[in-house]
Simulated scan of single mutants.
Amino acid sequence: MHLRNGSYEQAYTDFFEAFKSYDESGSQRRILCLKYLVLASMLMKSDINPFDSQETKAFRDEPEIVAMTRLIKAYQEHNLKEFQTIVDEHKDSIGTDQFVRERLDELIDNVRGEALRKIIRPYISVSIDYLANEINVSVEEVTRLLTQIILDQDSQYRIDQPANILYRSSIEQSQVDRQKVMDTVLERLESMRNNLIQGCY
């Protein structure tokens, strides 16, 4: 329920508690809970690997968990190519689980978004065609991901769709542009004030 509602932290806590309870009772459902625990961890974009905890460490090499172990590693490293390879290689264990399959697109979206952030970081301007090619998606898809990045936090970027280019304006340039606008507004206000004073006489 929490996972489907997007309450990933709550889902993570619940799956962890359920995993511990099933593990103590020796139930095989612990493996399923552990799989969903890893899923919740990825969705909440945690840097902490669930397999680092004492309770889960022993299950790292379980046949049903190996794919999830590799998946979270690729996810946390924002390694899109490796992530996609693991998903393709383990379609039987990952793709057949409806619960995981429901969130797979969101996970891939997140990895693509993070990979894109890494690629664009050093550029002042970069071709959208180049970015689409780098993460192996269509121009429309990369534009959608870039728009999401801009809306999320990186407002210094802007997309020039006719030219098909992503631009980044430096903070200094943005401040200069803001100052110019403020100067223009102040000049107009001063001019209006002078006109009003002259009109009174």
Rank of each mutant, 00 (worst) to 15 (best):
V100K: 06
F16R: 03
P50R: 03
I159T: 03
F19Y: 09
D105F: 07
V137I: 11
L34G: 05
I150L: 10
S46L: 03
N136H: 08
L146S: 04
I48D: 15
F59H: 02
Q153G: 15
Y167P: 02
L71D: 01
S21M: 00
R178I: 05
S27A: 15
R60Q: 07
S53D: 15
D177W: 06
R188N: 13
Q76W: 01
Q175C: 07
I150G: 06
R188Q: 13
S125G: 00
E62S: 12
Q84E: 15
I128C: 03
D129R: 11
F16L: 11
G199V: 00
A40H: 03
C33G: 04
V126C: 08
L189P: 00
A67S: 10
R103N: 14
E82Q: 09
E134I: 00
I171N: 00
L189Q: 15
K81D: 13
N133A: 04
S7R: 09
D92R: 14
K73C: 01
I149A: 09
S125T: 05
A132E: 02
K20D: 12
R117H: 12
I120H: 01
S191F: 12
A58N: 07
E172W: 07
I94C: 02
V87T: 09
R121N: 13
Q148H: 10
E102Y: 11
E9R: 08
Q28T: 07
M44F: 03
D52P: 01
L3D: 11
F51A: 05
D23L: 05
D47A: 06
T96W: 06
S155V: 04
A67T: 04
R168Q: 07
S25Y: 06
L32C: 04
T56N: 05
K57N: 06
T184A: 10
V139I: 14
M42R: 02
G199I: 01
E187L: 04
T69Q: 10
L146G: 03
I150D: 07
S53A: 05
A11Y: 02
M192I: 08
P122V: 11
V111Q: 03
I120M: 06
V176E: 12
V137G: 02
I48K: 15
S46K: 03
Y130L: 00
F19C: 04
N110W: 14
I120V: 11
K35D: 13
R103L: 08
N195S: 13
Q98E: 15
F16K: 01
I72R: 03
M192Y: 13
F83K: 01
N5W: 10
R144F: 11
R112V: 06
K118W: 06
T96K: 09
I94L: 15
I165Y: 02
V111R: 01
I171A: 11
A132G: 09
I165T: 10
